[in-house]
Computed example of a mutant assay.
Amino acid sequence: MKKGIHPHYQKVVFMDTNSGYQFLTRSTMGSSESIEWEDGGTYPLIKVEVSSDTHPFYTGVQKFADRGGRADRFMKKYNMERPK
């Protein structure tokens, strides 16, 4: 393989922000945040909104609270009311 053209492949921790579920794997992604893992090592922390722990396809049920639809979240974000 040519040197200097491949991304850095390292161990990272992914954390599901909805459930707190964490897992250690390898990735080319990096992060400015880090976390100490069970083995005593410190690894980059990458936060994701959905993982196999909360995705309905894997769990069979929706685990996180109803956050509303896209329109509802938009309205809430910009402090708007839905038209009647």
Rank of each mutant, 00 (worst) to 15 (best):
E33R: 13
T17C: 03
G60Q: 10
K63V: 15
N18V: 02
G68A: 05
M29L: 14
T25K: 01
V13R: 05
Y9R: 04
G30V: 04
H8T: 07
H55A: 14
K76D: 09
Q22S: 15
Q22L: 10
F14D: 01
E36R: 15
V50K: 09
S31T: 06
K2R: 13
F57E: 15
T28S: 01
K63N: 09
Q62L: 11
H6F: 12
W37Q: 10
H8E: 09
T59F: 03
G4D: 12
I35M: 13
M1F: 08
T17P: 01
R70Q: 08
W37P: 00
K84H: 07
G40E: 01
G68D: 07
H8C: 04
S27N: 08
K3F: 06
G69Y: 04
G68S: 01
G60P: 10
V13D: 01
S52T: 09
R82G: 01
S27Q: 04
I35R: 11
K63C: 07
N18R: 13
E49M: 07
Y58G: 03
F64G: 01
E36S: 09
S32G: 06
P44K: 02
M29W: 12
H8F: 11
Y21A: 09
L45W: 02
M1T: 11
A65G: 07
S19V: 06
V61R: 15
T59N: 10
E33H: 10
K63W: 02
T17K: 13
P56D: 08
M29K: 14
N18M: 11
M80F: 03
Y43M: 11
W37D: 15
E81Q: 12
I46Q: 00
F23E: 13
Y78H: 08
R26F: 08
L24D: 02
N79K: 11
S52E: 13
S31Y: 06
L24Y: 00
T28Y: 06
K63E: 12
H8W: 14
S32Q: 11
A71G: 01
S51W: 00
T59P: 05
M75S: 03
T17G: 01
M15A: 14
K84L: 12
R82D: 02
M1E: 10
K47S: 11
F23R: 03
D16V: 05
S34D: 10
M29Q: 13
H6C: 11
K84M: 07
R67S: 09
F57K: 08
K84P: 06
G40S: 08
D39W: 09
K63I: 15
E49F: 12
W37I: 14
E38W: 07
A71T: 08
Q62M: 09
T28F: 05
E49Q: 15
D72N: 05
V48C: 07
K47Y: 03
